[in-house]
Design a protein around this nucleic acid. Structure first.
Lengths: 130, 130
DNA sequence: AAAATAATAGTAATTGTTATTATTTTATTA
DNA sequence: TAATAAAATAATAACAATTACTATTATTTT
């Protein structure tokens, strides 16, 4: 018997929060955001729902190497840029290279199903500061 | 005045350990390995040296999304595969796509300096088990 | 409305990693 | 070679991100 999902306003608010931003927030950033509406919400609730939503495929979890996971409302495959200076995670408006997967499958024994690409460097904002 | 590096047999052993394997071990895996030779070595020493070596560019640190960092003796840019089933991290014998960086730079404001690619799927070993 | 079940807040525990410190090694100088 | 300086160590504590636990509350079903 599968556990059925039950509505919760907190989860709804977490979805709304993610839907309204493109900065790939961490769990803690979402927590800060939601607390304006639900001052009593617990950080554990935020984590549980973010993980639940990403398992359901409603959001995407990103691990970009800065120690904390980030979450993205945009579930369509796309690449990301991480600023080595300020840590910002930005979208890269590049169509995923289907070729990459094909080439990888050619040289790799085993089943290749998906891929992620992270670019690193210095973002526009930080460039202007120097 | 820059801090000069001083020899240590522990560090040497850590390098030897990495040089002798291609499985991209975690700090803890290296720790386990080194303890055969230095039963008294501390996990902190392993972490400190792995980070030091990766800052010096002698090894590579990988963040592949499984919560722990991994370390690679091979410092030349190459792509990796992560098995969703057993968690193994394997090399993909694919020349890095210079084109990726170029295309990204075309559409991205800001300085793009490097990129990482991780493929995900089911490795050969796990395929055979099912 | 009552019962069943999922979700929550609050808190404790866990995990991967980094910092601290007294002691030991390694390198340099006398 | 002995004395000194500097860096590395082992052991331990501290830390940050995340997950687990539990009693209570909210949502759904009967």
């Amino acid at each position: 018997m599968m556990k059925t999902l039950k509505y919760s306003r907190q989860r709804e608010s977490i979805k709304d929060c993610l839907a309204g931003r493109t900065d790939h927030p961490t769990a803690d950033m979402v927590y800060t955001c939601i607390r304006r509406q639900f001052p009593q919400i617990s950080l554990g609730t935020v984590y549980r729902n973010l993980n639940l939503l990403s398992e359901l495929g409603e959001i995407q979890k990103l691990t970009c190497g800065d120690g904390k996971d980030r979450f993205d409302w945009n579930t369509s495959p796309h690449y990301h840029f991480v600023c080595r200076n300020c840590g910002a995670v930005l979208d890269v408006a590049l169509e995923p290279f289907g070729e990459l997967l094909i080439k990888a499958q050619e040289v790799f024994e085993g089943q290749v199903e998906s891929h992620t690409v992270f670019f690193y460097g210095c973002c526009q904002k930080c460039m202007n500061l120097t």
